[in-house]
Design a protein around this nucleic acid. Structure first.
Lengths: 255, 255
DNA sequence: GCACTCTGGCTTGTGTACAATGCGCCCTGA
DNA sequence: TCAGGGCGCATTGTACACAAGCCAGAGTGC
């Protein structure tokens, strides 16, 4: 484990949020991608020094990236105890989905009004990329691109606070999907995405919102949030025993 | 300007978000308070070294606090050019208010269902504090406490993502009020707040939501978002010339 | 007189060293 | 054999030093 990337010349592919500017953006994007594509399992410890070696930067940069990830809820920052990949509980997942329905509805309505031709073109392109990923069998990239579609939709709605909130919600949703999706059904959201774009382009608010709500239902129904699925993560398994109020879940009883 | 606080013994009163734990929380809370109470005018440069001296900590801590404030939108972080107190444009203010209506409605509905007796008691206490502040003529504290009321309401709704979003929205709203409120009308929201608590306690969702929406209308009507008010801040005055997309507004034309 | 350039100073960005805290192992005693 | 306590190590928290990047002002040429 002593290999490292070349000292981070501004790499092009930085997936999401790829403002390929400063170093911490790159680190951020890489970790983010790794988490969403499940190369990093929930609960995994994210050591600052290890990451620093891997990316060839100092802990300062890593720390900033982790801080951003923590803000978006995909990483849990425990004081004096380091960062771990978040493992949202069922209850947390429900809360995220509730908030998402709310936001997606508003975004859809706004997008019907504000989306310009270029927005729509970009959205279509993203859906195509998404379809390609799934047909290629790249589930991780598919989840990520599906998320980016919803984020782009928020941008088309032209409301800055909602965009930022949506970014956080989408990140967490992706993590939840990665964690809870029942494997037997393929995640084929691109079809619904395309219909949605059509409705928005037709400026049919009623239809667009309906489609979006059904889309949310579908995502929801693909998850087993009703029962605990088998997991190697004690926190997830025993999440109903944990306090959900404080940001640092600890066992309520000694395990 | 060479005075400094005593080296930050864990001060108790840390206003909002007063997790009186680590140092950066304290710094964060103090700057936050200062901005909301208009002791720091929009556009003011926030020098890292100066703040570090004032609070008796190193730039590392200041930097973290500024980063958090930037996340909430009350501070603008310009790469290589330091931090300034945000001065939201009219358009940004409108977007914040749009998002707030959305969130407040959802929060109110949730609070009607989930608010427990202790939540309601705390809410009542906060409204009393708020009234005291205004009767004492402490407008800054009043604005802050009014914001904290709405934040507490979000907590009573028991949805973590909405709480965090609400925190950001309330912060920005407070900043907007501080910047745009027409001075001739007194900000007497505590009365409406109290009615709202009553409706929630009565579990009357319809009434509660109505009250909340009217409350939003009132706040809205107190601001002059229709025309530019006089301002000593070039960014605010010429905000319609500035790009609102990028996070770092620069003049579109040489001033 | 005006505008342009270059330089000096100041502020932020990054890396690193040291301090502090938490965790696990080992040792001891019952 | 197991529980409890103490110690050492590993990891994070903080401060500081150096590098890099802006900005303003003085100086110069047109």
């Amino acid at each position: 484990m002593n290999e490292q990337l070349q000292p981070l010349k501004k790499q092009s592919r930085a997936g999401k949020a790829g403002r390929s500017g400063t170093q911490d953006d790159i680190v951020y994007a890489h970790i983010f991608e790794a988490i969403l594509e499940q190369r990093l399992a929930p609960g995994t410890k994210l050591s600052e020094e290890a990451l620093g070696e891997i990316f060839g930067v100092s802990r300062t940069i890593i720390r900033r990236a982790l801080s951003r990830l923590a803000h978006e809820g995909v990483v849990l920052l425990r004081p004096n105890r380091g960062a771990v990949v978040a493992s949202p509980s069922i209850e947390e997942a429900r809360q995220v989905f509730f908030a998402r329905r709310l936001v997606e509805k508003a975004i859809t309505e706004l997008a019907v009004v504000h989306a310009c031709a270029e927005d729509l073109a970009q959205l279509r392109k993203m859906v195509e990329d998404e379809r390609d990923s799934f047909s290629r069998g790249d589930r991780g990239a598919g989840i990520r691109l599906s998320g980016e579609f919803h984020l782009k939709l928020a941008e088309a709605a032209k409301n800055a606070p909602l965009i930022s909130f949506q970014r956080s919600l989408v990140s967490q949703t992706s993590l939840i999907i990665a964690q809870y999706e029942s494997g037997n059904r393929s995640h084929c959201s691109y079809d619904e995405h395309m219909q949605l774009i059509d409705a928005i382009e037709a400026r049919d608010a009623g239809l667009a919102v309906d489609l979006m709500m059904h889309h949310m239902d579908h995502i929801d129904s693909k998850l087993n949030l009703d029962e605990e699925s088998a997991s190697d993560d004690l926190h997830a398994v025993f999440s109903h025993l944990l306090q959900t109020k404080g940001k640092s879940p600890r066992p309520a009883a000694k395990l």
